[in-house]
Simulated scan of single mutants.
Amino acid sequence: MRSLARVERDGIAMVGNLDGRVAFGFTERTGGVSEPPYGSLNLGAHVGDDPAAVAENRRRVLAALDAVEYSCNLLVPNQVHGDEVAVVHTADAEELGHVRTQISEGADAIVCLASGVPVLLCFADCVPVVIIGEHGFAVVHSGWKGTYAGIAGKAARMLAGELSCDPATLKAYIGPHILGSEYEVSAELIDKFAELYPASVRPGSRLLDLSAAIRASLVEAGVGEQSVFDTGLSTLSGTDRFYSYRGEGGTCGRHGAVAVMRP
């Protein structure tokens, strides 16, 4: 399935595929219990919101994925804008404990080969990427630092390696983010990206297209160009649906990219 649909279940809206063996979605900001300025489906536990509200919001998202029974296995890394990728092989409690220790120290992607282990990463302008294989998946947080480091391509290579499959069999989905027509950065950063990812910069401007760089890193890793799908949804101009750090003055909730593989 290459294209994604907007699906609403019990008030929770996601853009994704909630019915495949790997069910995944990019959440919208409505349908939760958080109060402003985090209203209402804030999934981030680090932004000042009531922890009980965040926990309930996460439960509702897992319910929409028909995965509440796996709540105790949920993995949510401490995102540090790096290129660390954690790998989980089984739902064994001891292994999950080791993985939780690792991701608490910082990780911006998780490769998951285990059924019944939901993975959630949080966003408010940075780029969410979900990579799907036949028997596993990866969820990636790609801000400009992670994008420059090629974290999406790294995660794709690791997923393919763990699955012993050709990266060309993977499918990648780029979720809502600040678009290239909106994301103005420093001249120094433009020069860095122009050298490494020429397609990500517009000549004569300081606009940076992170999704173009992510696409390039995925293709370089062996994912087929035709197997990379970008939702094209803007967080900055779509704050009715998504959170935007820039658009909301630095105080806001976080939407999520979430996935789980069914047994």
Rank of each mutant, 00 (worst) to 15 (best):
A124F: 08
D50H: 06
K192R: 10
W144F: 07
P176N: 02
E95A: 03
A55L: 12
G238H: 01
S115P: 14
I174Y: 14
D240L: 05
Y70A: 07
S104K: 08
Y38A: 05
T231E: 03
T30C: 08
A91W: 09
L113N: 14
S142C: 11
P203Y: 06
S104I: 06
I178W: 06
R241F: 08
C252R: 05
C126V: 07
S205H: 00
E195C: 07
D66Q: 04
L18Q: 03
T251D: 07
H177M: 00
L189Q: 14
L207W: 04
D191Q: 06
E84R: 09
A194T: 12
E28F: 06
E248N: 02
A187D: 13
N73E: 14
L18C: 04
Y245K: 01
S40Y: 08
P77C: 08
M261R: 15
A53R: 11
A172Y: 06
G143R: 06
A259N: 03
P198R: 02
V130G: 00
Y148R: 05
A109E: 10
M14T: 02
N73G: 13
A194M: 03
L43M: 12
E162F: 08
V219K: 00
E8Q: 13
C252T: 12
D209I: 03
E188K: 02
L196E: 14
G32Q: 09
R246I: 00
R58M: 07
Q79I: 08
A55H: 06
R58W: 13
I132W: 04
C126Q: 13
A152K: 11
R6I: 10
E69M: 03
S142K: 09
N78P: 01
G44N: 12
F123I: 15
I103D: 05
S34Y: 05
A63M: 05
V117Q: 10
G11M: 05
G150K: 08
G253L: 04
G161C: 14
P118V: 01
A53T: 10
G175H: 05
A155M: 03
I12L: 03
F24S: 11
